[in-house]
Design a protein around this nucleic acid. Structure first.
Lengths: 182, 182
DNA sequence: AAAATACATGTCAAATGTTACATGTAAAAA
DNA sequence: TTTTTACATGTAACATTTGACATGTATTTT
């Protein structure tokens, strides 16, 4: 079973919700380590339904709008817990187009390389700021409540990741500038 | 055109080689930021050939083994350089199954979470060591020769990335242990 | 009252990537 | 001399993900 299905089970294990709600979660709370579009979410829900891991009830919003509110089943909970407690070998290194460009940058003007490095530094600084803003909503750090504590840990991870990316780019920029002088 | 095709053009821009050679590069020098299997490389070479970005000559190894040695064309060089000098917006955050597990770890025993964190720390420390070993082959740091300098920059990036992952995991472990005492 | 945005659910085609299938030669080690 | 490893090239089936197509309701803003 694919990871996305476990991500969905994990969300439903916290709370029953619709495909639309799940999609929103993938764009917000899960955004820093897993994303999915609604075009992926709905078919996966169907597949989970066939497996008996989730079930749904139809609710009416207003007078006509139908909502399918999905709930995890005991079977689903078992499958989720089994995944959650398994130590999987780490996945292959994530692909990074910019690193590829940098790797081949011996074929371009040093000035151009610097321009590229500065552009990407700016982009990652922006991303870092966005993540830091999310962190501000915690009133105590680290939070005491268990699920908030988990949120905090992964958010710290996202901050580490972006800080590290930025500091690497800064190091590259310094090395390129020293090189220019020599 | 997909990024993989530019990666191939980039390699061929440095030197003519076979699909087999390219596949080896994806498993070694490019491994820390881009990978591809031979089952992807051969069809992409075919596609690049149709676009007129590469051409090949058949060589015989020994008495019968046929090799297709691919060379980049001027058109291919132009396309590559255009990609190389374009500042693309940064890609969506890479997916990370372990972060997903950690995010949902409020549903498991704190002891289990610690076990998972320690397992992943060990895995990433191993990966870090492997990358550091690669770095040892540079005799001057940073290297003076241009293409080696680029290799060095991306390798520093890989080291930063893994160091940052490890330090995050260490921080998580500390926070979890403090939590256990309270 | 109209327009814009959010809510809500789906499908389809295309791109990307992995694993397995399929075949054969050349060189090195046992 | 046999076996194993490296060299060499492809295809096919499957899984994952994205972007576009398709439709309609409810709420909020102008």
């Amino acid at each position: 079973m694919g990871t996305l299905q476990y991500a969905i089970l994990g969300m439903l294990n916290r709370d029953s919700m619709t495909g639309y709600d799940l999609t929103r979660e993938f764009q917000t709370s899960l955004f820093d380590f897993w994303t999915a579009k609604h075009s992926q979410v709905y078919p996966e829900l169907k597949s989970l339904l066939e497996k008996g891991y989730v079930e749904y009830e139809t609710e009416i919003s207003g007078t006509a709008l139908e909502k399918k509110v999905y709930t995890i089943t005991q079977q689903g909970r078992d499958a989720f817990q089994n995944w959650e407690e398994t130590a999987y070998p780490i996945k292959p290194i994530p692909k990074d187009e910019f690193r590829l460009q940098l790797f081949f940058s011996d074929a371009m003007e040093p000035e151009m390389r610097l321009k590229q490095l500065e552009y990407h530094l700016q982009q990652h600084r922006q991303r870092l700021e966005q993540i830091r803003k999310k962190q501000e909503k915690f009133d105590t750090i680290p939070p005491k409540e268990e699920s908030q504590f988990c949120d905090y840990l992964v958010m710290q991870g996202a901050i580490h990741r972006e800080e590290s990316y930025c500091s690497w780019l800064e190091e590259c920029i310094n090395l390129c500038q020293q090189r220019k002088i020599l």
